[in-house]
Design a protein around this nucleic acid. Structure first.
Length: 865
RNA sequence: GGGAGCUUAGCUCAGUUGGUUUAGAGCAUCUGCCUUACAAGCAGAGGGUCGUUGGUUCGAAUCCAACAGUUCCCA
């Protein structure tokens, strides 16, 4: 059958994926083999595939497929995350479009809508991962809100509470006034913005004098309960202990002193609003100040403020400034840049807010589980690249308590129950709760469950355990086999959200680390280093890319540009390079496949066939070794580049040319068989990177009877010397170069001559040189030939009717350069301290360099005479 | 404001303990080829005083210091 000259992935990808699945190639159950486990970073259940997922999951697939070939029982567990706040936001917006407000429906109604949404969009991303070729064990697909995993979340909450790590308390938290929920510190991003600094006069009590303060937030003036200065500030010494009048509300507040104050900023006097700033809150606690909350939960001005009630906070800021000006107490405004915290999800400006929430006591936790830090610092869990150890260390040593309650409905509802008197108990069910209350007269109808749900990450931190049902008795056996997992592949922006917390959960619930390696991928940007975003329109649609370039081409394009930890600058031309490479591979098969065979080996194959095969084996061997090392260091793009060069340059460029029969002639069966062995090894090495084309070609070589390439062995390597000297290839290149430089057609055959002393190396491969460089004879002497240096060997190349015109100036320039190089070596060798201090092999190397240089110079000088 | 990292060819990056590197790769560029597997290809070529300055050393892209530029994290 005729094979197309171009690789056409259409049809091929789906065909093999279906077969892999129907043959349960990716299914794993515990057995005698060592396990190799990867848990997928669960994408948002309603998310769709973007370039970050493409990168991340391609890497995981490469690792998993290779592990399978290395003989591990590879298990890649897929699944999705309910993504509490992200999904709830989407559902709220969708309902809004339908004219339904979340405030008007019940929790149950809302959850029905949310589950409808999840059923409609949930799992799209998993199908997209199949298109990418991901070799997940799909029968193990989990979802963080399914019953078993929910039970694990609730149990772990109860457990941690029992052990004193979870507490309920009123603290200053990050409040998202749009999502109307608390957020953890990690969900807040600080962004620089232009702002105004307002200088405002506060009248002193019983005096006509003023004290001036500077603030960026005049709308919170109504909540001021003090003015604070530095105790050493000479300007304000006399005022400490007196009172001043807060404008707009005319409240007398004390002037206090605290060395928290920055003498340089503004006027050196600070208005203190304990309800609306974390530092002011701390000041308030130290100085026993009142707390006046002037905001509602949507950050409109509250009744407590007394003025501007009901106005939005940003409008209130303008109104307050106007009013202050009208009162004549606004001295001036100044443009400054400051940083404001914004919600990662809703982008709303965060308000610090005093509120009752659930927290994990991280200080206590870290005191009890110091290995969470030390294990990473000691490389028990290895971070790739290692620079993230610093980030990790810094975060953990300054860790704050983790606010885990969210004022949302989509998520795991907190198992806390309240009695009418405010007693709180923690229990799975209302019935269990009832037994725990001290007041035994309470009825089920008297108690109420906490309305809030848990932070999404409070479920995903259990992922490496919970996907195996590790919290249930039924999962113990699997957990023992698959846990700890091998490698985690994830983006660096969730190092705190997820990576650190999985390590915590691993220790808290399993007493062991969750994984051995963490590979942090880069962030995918466009070629101008801009982040990919919807609004910029610079994010390609992965599905379209795969359709256009073939999945293997896209995977390869991504991997060629993805060194660990560096951002990857994605450019579609990389996919083109990937596609072209697929084509190269395709055509090398086409070549081999097209050969007719003969049982007889002619003179050429007798003499050179085995040399070529052994040379190729040695190349594959040494590249395999290097590739393995790259994998050990998670240098996946380097591994791919090695294989790219092996395939294109060594295999296609040199080896196939060496063993290719003359046009129309058959190839000896033995040599064809050998070439297929080589091709097979290359396909296996490439398979993790480009699963589809390698399967297609591997299956095309011969009938496989239901076997698949991913179940074949990863090539092993042995060090062997190559039977063909590198100088042979260099000589061939020199002959081609001379043709190129002088416009001599490849069809004009050449003859070569060289010194007897070095000719053996070339003589032993003379047939190969003749074949690849169109050389017709090895002569003793050639007149008017082109003299070239191969290493230090002088070779004379002759082409019929072509005479080398020696470029005297160029040769002289070369000699000059070599002489100055020689001068440097001689200087070094003449230096007594160098001879005394350098290692003998270093000195020997210099001696060798000197000898080589001298012989090169002699040869060039010979050309001038 | 605190911390970490980075700076090597036009671009993206390698360069492990200082000496086989008179600095490498891929892409891009240039030249010549539709040669019989592949023009989605082949054969060649050019291109960097390793951010700057100073120091340590027989020897520095590599170690140290300062400076400049840049990125990220935290507050």
């Amino acid at each position: 059958m005729e094979i197309s000259a171009k690789y056409n992935p259409e049809g091929i990808e789906q065909k093999w994926y279906d077969q892999w699945i129907s043959n349960k190639l990716f299914a794993s159950t515990p057995d005698h083999r060592p396990s190799y486990t990867v848990v997928i970073p669960p994408p948002n259940v309603t998310g769709i595939l973007h370039m970050g997922h493409m990168l991340n999951n391609s890497i995981q697939d490469i690792l998993v497929r290779r592990a399978r070939m290395l003989g591990y029982n590879a298990c890649w567990v897929p699944g999705t995350d309910h993504a509490s706040i992200a999904t709830e936001t989407k559902v709220v917006n969708k309902l809004k479009e339908e004219g339904i407000s979340k405030d008007d429906i019940t929790r149950e109604e809302f959850l029905n809508h949310a589950f409808d949404w999840k059923d409609k969009f949930g799992g799209i991303i998993l199908d997209q991962l199949k298109k990418l070729g991901c070799s997940c064990d799909w029968e193990r697909t989990r979802f963080t809100m399914e019953p078993d995993l929910s039970e694990a979340v609730i149990d772990s909450f109860i457990d941690l509470h029992k052990r004193g790590y979870i507490y309920h308390g009123t603290r200053m938290i990050n409040w998202d006034p749009v999502g109307k929920t608390a957020l953890s510190d990690e969900e807040v991003n600080h962004e620089e913005q232009q702002a105004k600094l307002y200088y405002v006069k506060y009248k002193l009590e019983n005096s006509d004098d003023f004290i001036s303060i500077a603030t960026t937030r005049p709308e919170t003036i109504m909540g001021d309960t003090a003015v604070c200065v530095h105790p050493d500030d000479e300007r304000y010494q006399k005022l400490i202990g007196t009172k001043c009048i807060v404008p707009l509300v005319n409240r007398a507040v004390p002037i206090i002193a605290d060395d928290y104050i920055d003498l340089e900023f503004g006027t050196g006097a600070l208005k203190v609003t304990p309800a609306h700033d974390i530092n002011d809150y701390e000041l308030g606690k130290r100085h026993n100040l009142a707390t006046i909350d002037v905001f509602n939960e949507d950050a409109t001005i509250s009744e407590a403020a007394g003025v501007f009630v009901g106005e939005d906070r940003f409008k209130a800021r303008k109104l307050a400034a106007l009013e202050l000006e009208k009162l004549g107490v606004l001295i001036k405004t100044e443009d400054i840049t400051n940083k404001v915290g914004k919600s990662e999800r809703s982008k709303a400006v965060i308000e610090p807010r005093l509120s009752a929430q659930w927290f994990v006591d991280m200080k206590k936790f870290m005191a009890d589980y110091p290995e969470v830090l030390s294990e990473v610092m000691d490389d028990d869990i290895k971070f790739h690249p290692a620079k993230f150890k610093n980030t990790y260390n810094h975060w953990l040593t300054n860790i704050k308590d983790w606010c885990i309650s969210r004022q949302l409905w989509w998520g795991h509802r907190i198992p806390a129950w309240y009695s009418p008197t405010g007693e709180i108990v923690i229990a799975r069910t209302s019935a269990e709760a009832l037994e725990l209350f001290e007041d035994k007269s309470l009825q089920i109808s008297d108690i109420k469950q906490d309305e809030d749900v848990l932070d999404t990450w409070f479920s995903s931190w259990l992922w490496p355990i919970s996907v195996f049902n590790g919290f249930q008795e039924s999962g113990k056996e699997e957990l023992d086999y698959y846990y700890p997992t091998a490698d985690l592949v994830t983006a660096p922006d969730i190092i705190f959200f997820w990576v650190a917390r999985m390590i915590m959960a691993g220790h808290a619930f399993k007493g062991e680390k969750p994984f051995k390696n963490v590979y942090f991928t880069g962030i995918v940007r466009d070629k101008e280093r801009r982040k990919m975003s919807k609004s910029l329109g610079n994010s390609p649609d992965p599905i379209k890319l795969m359709n256009h370039y073939g999945t293997d081409g896209v995977r390869m394009g991504l991997m060629l540009s993805a060194p660990a930890g560096n951002d990857i600058l994605f450019d579609e031309s990389l996919c083109e390079q990937g596609r072209n490479f697929c084509n190269k591979l395709w055509n090398s098969f086409r070549l081999i496949h097209g050969w007719k065979t003969t049982p007889q080996r002619n003179e050429y194959y007798k003499e050179y066939g085995d040399k070529a095969h052994d040379w190729m084996i040695a190349k594959i061997s040494s590249v395999t070794e290097v590739v393995n090392q790259h994998f050990d260091n998670f240098r996946i793009s380097d591994a791919l580049m090695e294989l790219y060069k092996l395939t294109r340059d060594e295999f296609s460029g040199w080896y196939l040319e060496m063993i290719k029969p003359t046009y129309g002639d058959p190839i000896p069966q033995k040599d064809l068989d050998k070439s297929i062995v080589m091709f097979d090894a290359i396909l296996r090495l490439l398979h993790p990177f480009m699963p589809f084309i390698t399967e297609e070609l591997w299956q095309s070589i011969t009938e496989r009877n239901g076997a698949f390439i991913n179940n074949q062995e990863w090539p092993s390597y042995e060090t062997s010397s190559t039977p063909i000297n590198d100088n042979v290839f260099q000589l061939i290149s020199e002959i081609r170069a001379k043709r190129n430089e002088n416009g001599i057609s490849p069809k004009v055959s050449a003859s070569i001559a060289m010194n007897d002393s070095n000719s053996a190396v070339y003589q032993s491969a003379s047939g190969i040189i003749e074949k690849l460089a169109n050389v017709e004879s090895f002569d003793d002497e050639i007149e008017n030939g082109f003299k070239v240096l191969v290493g230090t060997d002088e070779v004379n190349i002759g082409f019929k009717d072509f005479v080398q015109k020696i470029d005297v100036e160029a040769v002289k320039a070369k000699i000059k350069r070599l002489n100055s190089f020689l001068f440097g070596i001689e200087k070094k060798l003449g230096n007594e301290k160098f001879i005394a201090n350098a290692k003998p092999e270093v000195i020997q190397r210099e001696e060798q360099k000197k000898a080589d240089t001298l012989s090169k110079i002699a040869s060039l000088e010979g050309q001038l005479n």
